[in-house]
Design a protein around this nucleic acid. Sequence first.
DNA 1: CATGAATGAGTATTCATTCAT
DNA 2: AATGAATGAATACTCATTCAT
Lengths: 219, 219, 219, 219
Amino acid sequence: MPRPPGHGPGYEIKRQEIIDQAARLFAKQGYAATGIAEIGQVAGLAKGALYYYIGSKENLLVEIQNRVLNPLLTAARRIAALDEDPVLRLRLLSQTLLELILARLDHIWVYEHDYRHLRGANRTRLLRQRHEFEKIVRELLVEAMESGAFRKMDARLAMLQFLNMHNHTYQWAKPGGEWDAEFLSREYCATLISGFRSPSYDAGDLDERVRRFREREQG
Amino acid sequence: MPRPPGHGPGYEIKRQEIIDQAARLFAKQGYAATGIAEIGQVAGLAKGALYYYIGSKENLLVEIQNRVLNPLLTAARRIAALDEDPVLRLRLLSQTLLELILARLDHIWVYEHDYRHLRGANRTRLLRQRHEFEKIVRELLVEAMESGAFRKMDARLAMLQFLNMHNHTYQWAKPGGEWDAEFLSREYCATLISGFRSPSYDAGDLDERVRRFREREQG
Amino acid sequence: MPRPPGHGPGYEIKRQEIIDQAARLFAKQGYAATGIAEIGQVAGLAKGALYYYIGSKENLLVEIQNRVLNPLLTAARRIAALDEDPVLRLRLLSQTLLELILARLDHIWVYEHDYRHLRGANRTRLLRQRHEFEKIVRELLVEAMESGAFRKMDARLAMLQFLNMHNHTYQWAKPGGEWDAEFLSREYCATLISGFRSPSYDAGDLDERVRRFREREQG
Amino acid sequence: MPRPPGHGPGYEIKRQEIIDQAARLFAKQGYAATGIAEIGQVAGLAKGALYYYIGSKENLLVEIQNRVLNPLLTAARRIAALDEDPVLRLRLLSQTLLELILARLDHIWVYEHDYRHLRGANRTRLLRQRHEFEKIVRELLVEAMESGAFRKMDARLAMLQFLNMHNHTYQWAKPGGEWDAEFLSREYCATLISGFRSPSYDAGDLDERVRRFREREQG
DNA sequence: CATGAATGAGTATTCATTCAT
DNA sequence: AATGAATGAATACTCATTCAT
């Protein structure tokens, strides 16, 4: 998303570095409590030069949100469209979501805490994207109910349980912590699926199927 | 908790009102983004008078945290000490926690988002109290495993699942929303317990037992 | 135009003093080139206290414009409504205008130069008021034509000549300069009226009539 | 007026274009409120390149003032030295001045508003040139008095009336407006001369003589 | 010739806090 | 018990200018 006319080749690289550093600071102290001066300091840039790269403080927030939402939505749409059984797709989505959370913990802090500081169009777009993600989850849950795997439940409440379980992880996870996304996904989904499933449904070798699917995809 | 010696009778009442209003503003805009002037305005007080009651902005934050943690810890300690089966106690704790969350949504927003703005002793005490609560949950889970109700799991991970599920509720709950604490507690615990339970365990009439227990307590 | 709730008795006085000083600075250097810091310095106030009184820099500009336009329009409306012959009223208006210009030279500098820095509603109101003043002048000129005193001319061009002659005075007049408003008005009007008059019209003792009118008014 | 030694042939052309565009922006927004970045943008030049041509922002202002004052003074000197009657020369000067004002309205805005932003030698030279122009007008008026065409007046006040009338035109004139310089000059001078003239003087066919003089000059 | 990158002082404005009254 | 007034540092952001390439 380069600015007016002409930026050198190093521009975008440096820009991304600055966003990285801003994300770290925002995560630790909050967006509102972090000053532009502080960002300039860790970036080793005077205020003027900093603005050359960032345009505005809110811009930084937008970019951080995008770094979370763009890959999340892309992956979610792709997974939702797969020709696989809905429970498997939920499990894939869970793992992808947790991978993203654990890979970018600081971004997630900002994503979860500071979206309210966005204004106008930025805020609108963000809310729309969040709703799209929630819709994807809800529709997968509905599919799982219709397939007979899950019992009939309030789809919205099931979706919220799914999101509660996953989205709160950033609050306690540490970078390089003891559990990886695959493990957490297995555990979270074990709990959720055992709560949501029909009496007759047996998840069987779900985790094994996920593993094979992912191998196939990358291989 | 009166500060300088010699305050009239209305002091504490007005003080609590101010904290109420501050909580509402902090919840909506964030602690860092809310100005003292704004609080004075909704409180109908000039800044000088405001400071007479509050001492400092951080004080407000401390009080709000206390309003969440004091009743929470008191209730949690009482429930943990009950002579009841651990699953029942978990279910009681769940409902109490959700009652507190739904009753004071704005306080919870502040509690979840802005504890990082506390400094020094305030911060230390807060973290200690949070850990105490987590410990209570964890020990109840361990008891449930030892009683044979729950399968053997990583107690910390189980505790985190419990907290994820409950503590993220503030993000989407609305005051006067469609679900009350009892309903949410039943749903959350149904999911969690079906995920945690031993193959042999049957929760049976857990919700009914909770209802009877509560009636007995208040009656 | 006091601000929110409650200001002490000295507030408005000090506020007016600050506006005085700002007008002096704006006149000398221009609005855009004068910093808030500079105003605070001559006012002997730190930036915080300054803002307590002024609200914003643009506010200062608005107040200065008002100090010119309010008395000008009030006087112009009053004069236009007088039951006197139109040439006399023009002459009265001329003198009043020049009195205002000479009495508040610095305000007029700001009024003439910096109205373009007003935005939104402030700008709209200003332009409306300027047009009202121009309309009053134009209508007096039309009346003078209709009364046979002035020859038939393009009323707008006559109005612009009237304004050119008067409004450019600020550019060279000095406070306490050698000519007063009465003298300048006599000279300007002598020129303008001799240019505008019908061949048959004789202004006669116009200046004497103005003098008597003013004496009557004040006596 | 090339600056560093060794500039290509396009240098001066581009330089003049930049000054054109700067004048437009300064006129619209004021010198102080117009940024170098903005000028670079409309000139299609990065800031580095811009500075290659302009040297400094104040330089632009100097050039714009020169573009007004150089032709104005040249013309005024030439007209003053003509072997014609002083009233005709005043009328010629009036028309030339108005031609310049109407032809370069944006330059005149800058000339009238922003000369105060010049510093040091630039400012001194400007004031000297302005005084020279005023002196030329004043001396023509004196000549007209001495020739018996004008009555004896305060020459300075007459000069100021002349300048008031002409120099304020930029405030309301529009490019391509309904009146041209010849018309305005005729109207302004009709007013001024009827105000200044001796009872015995008859301007007669002044405008016709101006027309013939100009035809002769160009033919 | 022209650029992209950098600077650092400067912009208007807001902040939490204090204190004499 | 409460106020109006004041502070001074901090806020996000813009400025004219420079310079290596």
